[in-house]
């Protein structure tokens, strides 16, 4: 072998090992989570653990139902608020905004995405939570709270603004830059000729966006939304600050509640035995949910592009 070939071979091996280490770490993490969660899952049974709402330190009985529900409910609520807002931003930036202003708003969005989540948590706890309690809770209580059947779910609960709703709003703010970024990128790919074809038939800007641009980017958009949901599911610090971490029935969206991440952040330090294993089980579910969300998002984002 010449020295060039030897170098080439060494290079290939080193690069290959670096790539393989990524897979190894992921596998090792999954294995750790599985092994550590075994005691709790065997003790309570998989299905029972998933559906049980108990979280009793004294009697050492734990169930994942509340944290799981809290995690998905807060992520879903965040998406309900964030998706329309992010879409609006993306449409404004690609179709309406003058180019000078566009750079400023895009930079602000990037900045918003770069803020460490603990700062969101602190801001959420000291500013957003009291503000939502003072201004938004009464509004929602007066309107949605009056509805039959589901009204009780929107009753005001005064607890310093620390609740599921505040957590969702923080999450919404955190994922808006993310969704609008993906939506913007997708909308920028829409061929100008396609949009002009719509205008050429007498369509307005709004009609063109709604009937041509959005349908054109809907797969990428769905991918971005699922990816953002993955983020919302796993977001820890900001949520742990503002959700209240209370293991109690969810009476209203303004009740303090738990998510997987809030339970882990708050309880890992003092946990031992079955509780620790239960926390690992929660971590395992979160890992699985995130993996699924990411896979689905990749599939949607990499899906067949529409070409003209």
């Amino acid at each position: 072998m010449t020295s060039g070939q030897t170098k080439n071979l060494i290079f290939k091996i080193v690069a290959g090992m670096a790539a393989a280490s990524v897979l190894a770490i992921v596998a090792a993490m999954a294995a750790t989570l599985y092994v550590q969660s075994r005691p709790a899952l065997t003790r309570f049974g998989f299905v029972n653990f998933l559906t049980s709402t108990s979280w009793n330190y004294g009697q050492e009985v734990f169930g994942a139902a509340r944290p799981l529900f809290g995690t998905f409910a807060s992520a879903l609520l965040a998406l309900i608020v964030a998706v329309p807002a992010a879409l609006g931003i993306a449409v404004f930036l690609t179709e309406i905004c003058p180019s000078k202003l566009r750079g400023v708003i895009a930079a602000a969005l990037e900045l918003l995405a770069a803020i460490p989540s603990i700062i969101y948590g602190m801001w959420g706890l000291f500013i957003l939570a009291p503000a939502l309690e003072k201004f938004v809770q009464p509004l929602v209580g007066e309107t949605l709270g009056r509805l039959p059947l589901i009204g009780s779910f929107f009753q005001t609960k005064l607890a310093g603004g620390v609740n599921l709703f505040t957590a969702s709003m923080i999450l919404a703010i955190m994922i808006v830059p993310f969704i609008s970024g993906i939506a913007r990128e997708a909308m920028a790919q829409v061929p100008p000729m396609l949009k002009e074809s719509s205008y050429a038939l007498g369509a307005t800007r709004w009609e063109t966006v709604r009937r041509v641009v959005v349908p054109y980017v809907k797969t990428a958009l769905a991918g971005g939304i699922v990816m953002a949901m993955g983020r919302a599911l796993g977001e820890t610090m900001a949520v742990a600050y503002v959700i209240g971490n209370r293991h109690a029935p969810l009476e209203s969206i303004f009740s303090p509640y738990v998510t997987i991440t809030s339970v882990m952040a708050n309880e890992f330090n003092e946990a031992g035995g079955l509780q620790l294993s239960a926390l690992f089980s929660l971590a395992f579910f979160l890992f699985a949910a995130n993996f699924l969300a990411l896979t689905l998002a990749k599939r949607l984002l990499g899906g067949k592009k529409w070409t003209i």
Binding site: P191, M193, S198, A200, G202, A203, R211, I308
Partner: peptide, 30 residues
């Protein structure tokens, strides 16, 4: 209204991301 009276066909075919029927019905629905 002017654009409605002045149809335009471009260099490349520009079907909208929808069915054949909806493509042709697009301007009518507008």
């Amino acid at each position: 209204k002017l654009r409605n009276a002045m149809g335009m066909v471009f260099q490349k075919p520009t079907p909208f991301p929808m069915s054949v029927f909806d493509n042709v019905a697009y301007g009518l629905r507008l």
